[in-house]
């Protein structure tokens, strides 16, 4: 589902410096992989490469069978729209849309007209079925991240990418959200990659890998 082959990337700077080299990774459908590493190690850059938002200096990135190097910007955008879901640290729920409209956004962008049932199901999956008409400002941080998870999964993407999804949450809420995130992504059969500093977050993953300048290694090997 996700395949990285000998991927290398330098930090463009200034000043430029090597981030990582020789990164290879395969993530299967329904698998959740956590990437850990120090700040500045390139975890977010690795997610950007998988999302087609950045290009590697060397190596290949394949997502759901598509070689990203062969796709132009519009094709990569379509790939993100149809086959990827994102969960951000700061939620990024659009304040001018209702909760339901936020969740429906990926469907609307994909040109899917009748979104009601799927939006309801996605919100029900994260326990917010009764908040579809609420405004984001009326929700707590934990609820907002659940909205973001529903938005990431509503169009049943093949791949879900999450960067510090609990970074802005208190430990108790983080635990609840993480459990929900792991459960929902597995049930939907998405290949999920999560970048995190959090040990608690890493515990819900099927595999935990550490990003080093020489590639990915099992975290417990460090």
């Amino acid at each position: 589902m996700i395949e990285l082959v000998q991927v290398a990337r330098r930090w463009p700077g200034p000043p430029p410096r090597p981030l990582f080299d020789g990164v290879s990774l395969t993530v299967a459908r329904g698998e959740l992989v956590a990437i850990v590493g120090e700040s500045g190690s390139g975890k977010s850059t690795l997610l950007n490469l998988i999302a087609g938002l950045d290009t590697p200096d060397r190596g290949r990135v394949l997502v759901d069978g598509a070689d990203l190097a062969r796709l132009d910007d519009d094709a990569r955008t379509r790939l993100r729209r149809e086959r990827l879901g994102f969960v951000f640290q700061a939620f990024h729920v659009l304040p001018y849309l209702t909760v339901g409209q936020n969740v429906a956004l990926p469907l609307a962008l994909a040109g899917i007209g009748d979104t009601g049932t799927r939006v309801h199901a996605a919100l029900a999956a994260v326990g917010l079925a009764d908040r579809a008409h609420s405004r984001p400002r009326e929700l707590s941080g934990g609820e907002l991240q659940r909205v973001a998870i529903a938005r990431a999964l509503v169009h049943e993407p093949a791949v879900v990418l999450a960067d510090e999804p609990t970074g802005n949450l208190d430990p108790r809420t983080a635990t609840t959200v993480l459990a929900l995130f792991g459960d929902v992504t597995r049930r939907r059969g998405a290949a999920t990659v999560m970048a995190t500093h959090s040990r608690a977050a890493a515990r819900i993953a099927d595999r935990v890998l550490a990003l080093t300048p020489d590639g990915l290694v099992p975290a417990d090997a460090q």
């Binding site: 910007d73 955008t77 993100r80 951000f88 659009l94 990926p106």
Partner: peptide, 16 residues
């Protein structure tokens, strides 16, 4: 800009 970045992540093209 951040809102636009999120929309680009969600699959909105520059043209859209």
């Amino acid at each position: 800009r951040r809102e636009f970045g999120v929309l680009r992540h969600l699959g909105m093209t520059r043209g859209e």
